[in-house]
Design a protein around this nucleic acid. Sequence first.
DNA 1: CCTACCGATCGGTAGG
DNA 2: CCTACCGATCGGTAGG
Lengths: 199, 199
Amino acid sequence: MSPRRSAADTRETRQRILGHSLAIASQEGLEGLTIGRLATELGMSKAGLLGHFGTKETLQLAVVDAAAEVFLREVPRRVKQLPSGLRRLKDVCEAWVSYLERNVLPGGCFFTAATAEFDGRSGPVRDALAGMNALWRRDLRIHIRRAVSDGDLPPDTDVEQMIYELLGIMLALNHFLQLEKDAAAPARARRALERLFRR
Amino acid sequence: MSPRRSAADTRETRQRILGHSLAIASQEGLEGLTIGRLATELGMSKAGLLGHFGTKETLQLAVVDAAAEVFLREVPRRVKQLPSGLRRLKDVCEAWVSYLERNVLPGGCFFTAATAEFDGRSGPVRDALAGMNALWRRDLRIHIRRAVSDGDLPPDTDVEQMIYELLGIMLALNHFLQLEKDAAAPARARRALERLFRR
DNA sequence: CCTACCGATCGGTAGG
DNA sequence: CCTACCGATCGGTAGG
């Protein structure tokens, strides 16, 4: 009667796995994501699950990609696609704060958690995380440089310094939201950003 | 011939275990710290090791305490015990940057790593970490308040905002040191601190 | 502190 | 996608 699993079904199952993996990984880390637990919670067998990815490491890499997808959808793609510059930078940062504030993933920022977890290791997962971090900094760098050449930031702006401080504000936001459940943290992040852009 | 293990020997063994645990945990996390691995690397049996702590959770709590010991020794106790205030606050922050810069633990700041790992969970380990974070913020709060009442910081200083930004600078420092091995990060942290105290 | 062991779970494979 | 299984390792205990 019912046809064999179509390619679309397969893709859907894969997305279900990745969605649940992302939720687990944001709370308990990429290593806390075990095949057995994942299979049980999704109501499938370990072998069936592993069939989609081959090994746990491949699954972890797919989760990193899925997390990047979510972040790109929720932050840069969410703001009006104005020309690069200070206005766009501010919009991106506001979307970033809002992303963390809205608790899109149950455990907060996946990349913050996963980066802290893997920064002391080596291998493909660590490299993928480092690559995503570098890509995102590159985006910020472009906006900041443009803001400087537009005259919206002082000509002596230290671009890397600004990226450093931006990231610090976001790391602190994630920290206060996750550890302290401090509802005042987003306002603090916004205030810190204002001070950063108004120097 | 040789006497039975003395209480001093026992304490020494315990310290050896905790020291090695701290090194592992700063790199691979408090959960990556497994009894079997720890026992092998220390050349003792799992049962012998567990005898000192009872359960893994008790070991994890002891590691949190040991990490606090190291941090207190390397940061607040390392600066001249001047009266609380802006001078002391600046000294403490410099010791904090230096602590991370000198890579006292192989995986960077234990508390940053462990907090990111446990902030999505519940239980005694998470609570102990939250408690240490709160204690440290209390210290910083006292210094900032004193600096304000001394007139060394503006009377309208938002104390919690300054703590937030301070923590962000340190989280970013740990991030850039661990993930990017960016030797320029300590200088960026110092510059960000200057800007924070000079507003 | 040790040896010897426990049940549970890990990632993964064979075969269908 | 499944069942059935593998060796390795997990935290922990009994008994000395």
